[in-house]
């Protein structure tokens, strides 16, 4: 076989597989849109659930999920970014750095249900937050931490040392250099980490199962020590329990669609921040 022929076949395989992957994504999206779009209207996103969740809307679950995203990111983003800065800018290469990196990588691989159990043990019981938005946000934040730390570290590592040297040569301190040169340059990639973790946080069910999620709570949470409904858990409930599962099915798809839309909007917002920052 000629080299040109081999190349053609290789690219054919690569292209087919890529199309397949994108295709599957579109099939899933299309499936959910077709099944879910029917139930979505203003009432669906603005009303409390009624009649064993078969009527009314899913407002508390939407609000709950938004609170959880905001709470977990508010907790995990600053800590994660600062840890990433410490890892890349301060900690020298050596056993300590390798150990921390190994641990963060392992943390990223821990099943989310384990985070859920840990969150229940620490935040709900030990710290006595109870089943609450606070406990749920912190648990989800822990889940998001490794992703934010590693993407921040990689983003900083990608910044050429010549920038650092130029800044030091101007008489700038290390802190000033990080603040004014390194972080702004790394910002777009750090935001990518944020987007990834928002996606993960908003969709997780296991970590909120024992820490915040309410089965049925037709009111909005009063404070961060209040329980709340959340979209992924609501979806699980609709799909597995309830009085009339067949009747609940379209509502489940509608809920899934709303969840996807929320993640999409978060991503768009993060991209917007990235664009503004770049200017």
């Amino acid at each position: 076989m000629t080299a040109a022929k081999k190349q053609q076949i290789a690219f054919l395989i690569i292209r087919t597989l890529s199309i397949l992957v994108v295709g599957i994504l579109f099939v899933i999206l299309g499936f959910i849109i077709i099944r879910g779009i029917g139930v979505i209207n203003w009432d669906f996103i603005s009303k409390m659930p009624e009649e064993g969740m078969l009527e009314g809307g899913i407002l508390p679950a939407i609000i709950g999920t938004l609170y959880l995203i905001a709470g977990s990111i508010l907790f995990a983003f600053p800590i994660g970014v600062m840890s990433g800065i410490y890892m890349n800018e301060y900690l020298k290469d050596g056993p300590a750095k390798r150990f921390v990196r190994l641990m963060t990588d392992n943390l990223a691989g821990v099943p989310s249900i384990v985070f859920g159990l840990f969150g229940m043990a620490l935040f709900v019981n030990k710290l006595k937050f109870g089943d609450s938005l606070l406990a749920g946000s912190l648990t989800l934040g822990l889940l998001a931490l490794p992703v934010i730390i590693r993407t921040t570290e990689e983003a900083l590592k990608a910044i050429d040392d010549t920038y650092r040297h130029a800044s030091y040569a101007m008489g700038a301190s290390k802190l000033h250099t990080i603040k004014k040169i390194i972080l702004p340059a790394a910002f777009p990639n750090i935001i990518t980490g944020l987007i990834l973790s928002i996606g993960r946080v908003s969709g997780e069910t296991a970590p909120i199962l024992f820490t915040v999620a309410a089965y049925f709570l037709p009111r909005l949470p009063h404070s961060m020590f209040d329980q709340a409904m959340a979209l992924p858990y609501h979806l699980y409930v609709l799909a597995t329990s309830g009085t009339d599962i067949d009747k609940a099915r379209p509502i489940a798809y509608g809920t899934a669609l709303i969840l996807i839309i929320i993640v999409l909007i978060c991503n768009l917002m993060a991209n917007l921040i990235r664009k503004i920052q770049r200017k």
Partner: peptide, 20 residues
Amino acid sequence: VEELRKKVGMVFQKPNPFPK
């Protein structure tokens, strides 16, 4: 050292303007 570098400036081999 920061004060020293204000007095002793440096131009590098590869042009390295900040991305600003």
